[in-house]
Amino acid sequence: MKHLRPATFVIFAVVCLSGVMLLYTSQSVQNAQDRQAALESSIAREQEKIRMLRAEWEYLNRPERLETLAKEFLDMMPPDSEYFVESEDVPSIQEETADVQIEKAPQVEPAVYTPIVKPTAKPPVPVQKAPPAPPKKIPEKITEPSKPAKNFQDLLDNLGAPAQGEGSP
């Protein structure tokens, strides 16, 4: 077998090796491309979702709807020019409230830090804490007061209604 010199075997081995490497490389390229395609399509999907959510967000934040909801559920009223306060008036208000707090602070401390061994009398009432405001009655189900309750999905359904009717090819 003088035609099969050692060099032939070496070449053969190199060819095989490079074949395997080529296969491996092409495999990894293909995998990477698949991943890219998958990522791109998922990005496109996410972007579409974002678009949809943004549209829904703006739809739900219509000033008209917010106004109706605010009127129904919040104890607030539209501001009036009477309620504007000059900025120089603001510090004086802070000073007044600060005085009140300093005066009453010492009374509060024992009630907070010393454990009461013998409750001789009623423990001093912490003044700082305002009595918890009665929780605002939250309606069990928030129904949109405006007109017939329209939900975003229904709106989209109507929007997506293609021109053809049922049965047409």
Binding site: Q27, Q30, D34, A37, A38, E40, S41, S42, A44, R45, E48
Partner: peptide, 19 residues
Amino acid sequence: ILQRHDAGEGLGHIYEASG
């Protein structure tokens, strides 16, 4: 063996095409 999972990713291509 190597590319058998491609079938599942076919959806991705469909989305890409429409996107």
